[in-house]
Design a protein around this nucleic acid. Structure first.
Lengths: 196, 196
DNA sequence: TGAACTCGTAGACAGTGTCTACGCACTTCT
DNA sequence: AGAAGTGCGTAGACACTGTCTACGAGTTCA
């Protein structure tokens, strides 16, 4: 035994299992006991590392925020020097993440299931918003509107599109099966029509 | 007995209790047994009217959509003839509803807790969106953008602001304790700056 | 009067999160 | 080397959940 690929202890294995499980079976399947079962331990074992169910779920959600931040970071880096393209890429990456990892995305914003004071939750999401503000400020240096406000509204718009589209509410109302037009509409609305 | 103000049967009493409960104690308190307890019946009684927990929650959420639709309807009626003002009033009313009835608003969009085929859920929300599309079309009759797209993006924006603000995520990032600037930013962005 | 039906009761069942007592295996002293 | 301590997982209990079933009191109908 001990021949596992990465036996860095039960703690991270529990989180691994949760990350797998949430996209396979949805948030509802993330019971403490099911996670323990899949990790091959008894239902009391997780308690050694996570005092409560919420803290385990928070650790799982943290992985999601890390993935999202990484993915968004790549998207931004790929368009260095062009804030508008960076914002577009960031937005697309966000929406893509939400639609690809549905279970995880739902968990990440089910704040009744998360401990907001959990290490890394705010730490991972706040920098993301900070870069959003910077990018917005870079795109509209002249406009009188406060970048924080514009960025906040844009963020909310992205989040809303991701959420509503994920539920199927928007495609029923808007028609079609591609959220891209919505995305472009949101970007154009908040940042002004695409230059050129 | 039978001297209640409106003893229209257990069915509606259960929904009444749920409506009270969800804003008092939150979505998490809406257990079947707790609702039955507060209604003064045994835990098996609701089953006579609601075959499953989800169907009871859906009936409760339906009340929320009805309230929201009514509230939005009043807001629109108050500005007859001025689509831009109507849209502003509709948006404000939506956000106001979300922040005043937090528990209910959360329930209404916790689609994992609702049966989307439940009578009245789509029936109550789709017309709301239809009026939104009409109003948007009225405000931007010239623009090349499809009203449905603009309306969808605006809807998502409203929803995102309501949700994120309700969690406290946005005020931390944007600063201040008034969501009004965000609302105005969203409206101006999607509908163009206020006329005049 | 008697049968049928409506509608709520009460118990069982499997599942959940949390808490506690226990024990195995390993380290770490002396 | 032997003993004490400790890290870590097991296992059972508890109260709670949603669902299912059998039952019965009260009313209505024939």
């Amino acid at each position: 035994m001990a021949e596992r690929e990465q036996d860095t202890g039960l703690r991270s294995r529990l989180v691994d299992v949760g990350v797998e499980l949430v996209d396979e079976e949805g948030v509802g399947a993330l019971s403490l006991r099911e996670i323990a079962r899949r990790a091959g331990v008894s239902h009391g074992a997780p308690r050694r590392y996570f005092p409560t169910h919420l803290s385990l779920l928070s650790a799982i959600a943290r992985r999601g925020f890390e993935s999202l931040a990484a993915q968004a970071g790549e998207a931004i880096a790929a368009h260095e020097g062009d804030p508008r393209a960076q914002l577009t890429a960031l937005a697309r990456s966000w929406l893509d993440f939400a639609l690809t990892n549905r279970g995880m995305f739902e968990l990440m914003f089910r704040h009744d299931l998360l401990r907001s004071d959990h290490l890394g939750l705010r730490e991972t999401s706040l920098p993301l918003f900070a870069t959003l503000v910077d990018l917005v400020a870079g795109v509209r240096p002249d406009s009188g509107a406060e970048p924080r406000i514009v960025a906040g509204a844009l963020w909310a718009n992205l989040h809303g599109i991701a959420q509503l589209w994920g539920w199927g509410s928007l495609q029923l109302a808007v028609g079609g099966d591609d959220p891209e037009p919505l995305l472009r509409a949101a970007l154009d609305a908040h940042l002004g029509p695409e230059a050129r």
